[in-house]
Simulated scan of single mutants.
Amino acid sequence: MSADEDKYPAESGRRRFVKGVVGGSALAAVGAAGSAGINSATASPGSGGGTTQAMAIENTAGPAPRGMPQIPIEIDDNGDLKGVWPEVEEIEQGGRTIEVARTQMGGMEYSSEWFQYCGVESYEGIVPSYDSDNYFVSGEEPAYDWQAEAVSGGEPLNISMFEDYEEWGNGIGQSGLGKPATGTWRSQDTDNVIPIQVVRSPIIEEIANGNTDAPQPIVDWVNASTDQGFIAWLNKCTHFCCVPGYKQEESSAKFNAENSVYCACHQSVYDPYSIVQTLFVARPRPD
């Protein structure tokens, strides 16, 4: 497809979703010996790390090497949004016992190692057994005017704040694709804040319900990892660890990113409506 070709025709009113799944073939390309070497090199002296497959919002342009990892989401009985944290267990690695947080979800293995990059591996909130209620809470300076008016810093994001998600717009790009919010996760009483971005979108609902041309493994994953159209991800650019934004920069239009997540630092672009499986080397958590 040429750079000038519109892969999301305006007349469709919705994006198309053709997803590539980086799975067994990619791991095979690494090779058994190479994979073992990578794991050995990254497992000590820290905990965890090594070759990791994560579900991510796709990187579609710019220097970022891969997408940003998705955070599975659930909504409690009060309508508050929570990030799902994997189950914690102890395993033997490199001749010692370490904690890991991982669980099976939607046909995939979801692991805390998804978030072990850009220094986040050193944050207290990424320690598997860190005690957190896992709610997504608004920061003190949210990126959107509507959010600053609706919720105070430190308060949880609630589904009631997103009722106009099918019409919402802020003058950047196309309205009605989804309503976003910024916040933090697993960061109470910590020195380091884990930034997250949430979007409630009818497009995510369509994928979760199978109304898409995405492969079935992607549909199964999105169905399990999203809730009522909400999708969330760790908002750390995989290039130089900047904090990107969805519909936050008017200048994003210069890079055809007005309907995407745009990193103004180095023009990396991510599509929050294209979920892919990505392979990378997670950094070990420091002891």
Rank of each mutant, 00 (worst) to 15 (best):
D76Q: 11
K7G: 01
E90L: 13
S25K: 11
E92K: 11
A26L: 09
Y144M: 04
Y262G: 09
S268R: 00
A26R: 11
G183V: 00
G67I: 10
V261C: 09
V84I: 07
S175G: 11
G229M: 01
K19E: 14
P142D: 03
I57Y: 03
A264Q: 14
A143G: 13
V199M: 02
T60H: 03
E92M: 09
V100F: 08
F240P: 01
P286Q: 09
Y144N: 07
Y165D: 05
N59W: 04
S25A: 14
I126Q: 07
S274R: 03
P195A: 00
W221S: 00
W233Q: 03
D6N: 10
T51V: 15
S2W: 12
I75E: 02
S2F: 13
D220T: 12
V151G: 06
Q277E: 11
F162G: 11
P69Y: 04
T212A: 08
W168D: 07
E141I: 14
R66A: 13
M1R: 05
G94A: 05
I172Q: 13
S138V: 14
W185S: 02
A32Q: 15
S12C: 10
P215L: 13
P244D: 01
P244T: 01
D77E: 15
T226C: 00
Y262N: 05
G176I: 07
Q93W: 07
A101I: 06
Y135R: 15
Q216P: 07
A253E: 15
M108Y: 15
W85N: 01
E258I: 08
V100W: 02
Q70L: 15
N170D: 00
G176A: 07
R200T: 10
R186H: 04
G46T: 03
N134Q: 09
G245E: 00
R102I: 00
T97L: 10
A10H: 05
C237S: 09
D227R: 08
L27Q: 09
R14Y: 13
